[in-house]
Simulated scan of single mutants.
Amino acid sequence: MYQGQFSSLDALVSGYVAGSLPKPVHVLMDAHLELSPDNRAIVGGLEVAAGDALEHIAPEAISGRDAALASIFASDPAPLSAGDAVRRCGTMPRALQDFVGHTADDIPWKTKMPGFREFDMDDVDGCHVSMFWIKPGRTVPAHTHDGMELSLIIQGAFSDERGRFGRGDISIADPSVDHRPTAENTVPCIGFAVTDAPLRLTGSLRQRLGDILSI
């Protein structure tokens, strides 16, 4: 449904400033900006620019002009340091904790395979939302996506064929991405995922079984 709309961080930022993102993606971006002060400053500047542009539009040319301005300026553009984010909410960014209803320490995980846990939530705005937990050093079986998958890392990190994704980073995967994410050996990799279609396992059967059964 959303394939192509969120193909880059720039596209996500544009949608965030415009207020056009589905609720779970907006929450993901709120959480990302709590953990990424540099991007928070950029978004704040874009919000101000958008507000300036709206100020020069005739009132009759836009329906609900005051509401649009209020939406644009709803977020405080002042940069939030990563240290401030940690002090305010610990591992889980405040926006994500409010949405999920749990802290990172009391999420009711369900084990999906050795070394991989998940907390599934209800679908919202056509998106499936979940939290995931990957054991240090664990490799997730190779897979691709029938649609779009956005993953925000809130603890630890994973690496795949595209590079490394650590705390505050967003992994953007679509049908062109076929990967085997591997968590780093230090701490569990915890993240928030938003998808609009199921994933599909790829790779050989032997590789899949090896990844699934590895401890």
Rank of each mutant, 00 (worst) to 15 (best):
R208L: 14
C89T: 15
I154T: 08
V17I: 09
P22Q: 01
I172M: 05
S7T: 06
H56A: 08
G163W: 08
P141M: 04
Y16L: 12
P37I: 06
P181A: 01
I134F: 08
A68N: 07
M29H: 06
S159N: 10
H145N: 09
A95T: 07
D122Y: 12
C127W: 00
M148D: 08
F99V: 05
A50P: 00
R65Y: 12
G4D: 13
V140C: 04
K23S: 08
S14I: 05
W133S: 00
K23H: 10
I172G: 02
F99Q: 00
A183W: 03
M121G: 02
D125W: 05
F116V: 13
V124R: 04
T91F: 12
C89E: 07
V86A: 15
A67E: 10
H26A: 15
M121K: 00
K110C: 08
P59R: 14
D98I: 06
A74Q: 13
F73S: 12
A85S: 15
L152D: 03
L69K: 01
D76I: 14
P22R: 00
Q155A: 13
S71L: 02
D160Q: 11
N185H: 11
I107F: 07
A31K: 07
H143F: 12
I154R: 00
P22G: 06
E47F: 01
D76Y: 12
P141H: 12
F165N: 01
D122F: 13
M92Y: 02
M131W: 03
D125Q: 03
S176F: 03
G19F: 04
A104D: 10
Q5Y: 07
G64W: 08
A70W: 03
P79F: 12
S151N: 12
D106R: 04
D125G: 11
S14Q: 13
G166Q: 14
I212F: 10
F132Y: 09
P93K: 03
F119R: 11
Q5T: 08
I170A: 01
F116Q: 03
R138I: 01
H56Y: 08
S36Y: 07
S20L: 08
I72V: 15
F99M: 00
D211Y: 02
A82W: 01
G4V: 14
V25E: 02
R88Y: 08
H143M: 11
Q3Y: 13
I154C: 01
L9E: 07
I190S: 00
K135F: 09
A157L: 11
S71C: 08
A78S: 15
I57W: 10
S7D: 14
L209E: 15
I134D: 00
D52M: 11
V25H: 05
G90S: 12
V194R: 00
V48M: 12
F119N: 11
E55F: 05
T111F: 01
L152V: 04
L9Y: 10
H32P: 00
L80G: 09
N39S: 14
S214L: 05
C127V: 01
